[in-house]
Design a protein around this nucleic acid. Structure first.
Lengths: 225, 225
DNA sequence: ATTATTATTGAACGATCGTTAAAAATAACG
DNA sequence: CGTTATTTTTAACGATCGTTCAATAATAAT
């Protein structure tokens, strides 16, 4: 029982509708700005301006800055995890035991779909995850919000490579995750590297298929035998 | 001829040896702290303390903060590029025309080698590159310092996939780069995901081979046909 | 409608930020 | 050595940072 285990303050009344809207507006603004500039790149005042509220309200609804960051990341984590796990379960229900590609598909496609077609907030959240994933400082958040789901997928892959060490399967999955995040956060880089040539712009599904091809081939080649 | 094209101030005397040492100490400290916390995560005062100099000296030797960041990134860029291109040329000289794996090897291994065995400063620099690569804000630096070399490698790969669009080859290379950076910056994540099991820790070369296997397989699978 | 609780506001706190200016010290050159 | 350019130091500037507090307004509960 450390000092951090303080009991949450007891509420005596339900929060008003307006208050909930304000809170949501603040969290949305924080999500957008944190996604854009990371934790240090967004200030509480920037967030307040973006949410169109006085600065003190950000502290009131979000707590201290680190707590706000934590709240913003955690807010959609469960929904995203459910998307991931639902994809896994419904794929199993539809096609029986899953092969490697199907497992990768269940991880990559829901994320890219939400990032591209889930609205501006999910687009921001997808970028935010990249920040959390890149900075060791947020490892506790990662462990709490994402690692459990990732562990499910890794566990799903282990029996498919009976001769491979778990460490390597996890490594290949980390490679896949980083490639996935790079696709969501820096497609501009890819398009730029291909030159200004007017090649037809690819859609989401095309890139998703391409990425899944890449990861599947990577898994097979790196864990063969 | 814009206002930014100001002529560099003419020197009338050679810089002293002590001054060069101080400058190097400052750039080294900035490199370490920028690598750790990114541009916004490191303050000029932190850098000054780490370099054991007064704050004003950081400005004197490094200029404004953005210029300092730029200088730090550019400082080792040429050396790294030469490592990359030398690997390419000497591999060609030794084995004639290179296959896919050899090209990937020439890109991945020099980077990982420098990151792991090039000393603390190169380890920091390897992490710094990940920051530059992840933040669109530093795209000009990327374009100037790294994109030319990357373009050489992509050009080397194009004839190996005559039926593939350049955009896709570039995409697969970006996937490979992000996986490579993730290996240099977050091996802790991989080791953590594999569980606390006491599996023997892998060395650099083992992980490098593994990553190259992964990328080669990814390229072949994604660009097949 | 009254009251108790929550939400919002405006202002301010101390700390730290990047940057600059002017002396003081150091090193290079004639 | 004496002179001059360069480097280092010390101190301070204004701006912005995260956070807090006392007030006022708004709202749910009685």
């Amino acid at each position: 029982m450390t000092e951090t285990d303080i009991a949450p303050p007891r509420r005596k009344r339900a929060p008003s509708k307006r208050s909930l809207e304000t809170r949501a507006r603040i969290l949305d603004a924080a999500e957008r700005l944190f996604a854009q500039g990371g934790f240090d790149g967004a200030s509480m005042r920037d967030i307040a301006v973006a949410a169109d509220v006085p600065v003190a309200l950000v502290n009131f609804h979000g707590g201290a800055k680190e707590a706000l960051f934590d709240t913003v990341v955690a807010r959609r984590a469960e929904t995203l995890a459910r998307h991931w796990l639902d994809a896994l379960e419904s794929a199993k229900a539809d096609h029986g035991p899953l092969d490697l590609r199907a497992v990768l598909d269940c991880f990559i496609r829901p994320y890219l779909n939400l990032a591209a077609t889930g609205g501006a907030q999910w687009t921001a959240y997808a970028r935010l995850i990249a920040h959390v994933s890149a900075d060791e400082r947020w490892r506790p958040i990662s462990e709490r919000c994402f690692d459990p789901t990732v562990a499910v997928f890794v566990a799903e892959l282990i029996p498919k490579f009976p001769k491979a060490e778990t460490r390597r399967i996890a490594g290949a999955f980390v490679f896949s995750i980083s490639a996935m995040l790079s696709l969501a956060t820096s497609r501009w880089r890819i398009e730029a590297m291909a030159g200004d040539s007017g090649e037809a712009t690819s859609g989401l599904d095309e890139w998703a298929d391409f990425l899944i091809d890449f990861c599947e081939g990577g898994f097979r080649a790196a864990l063969a035998g």
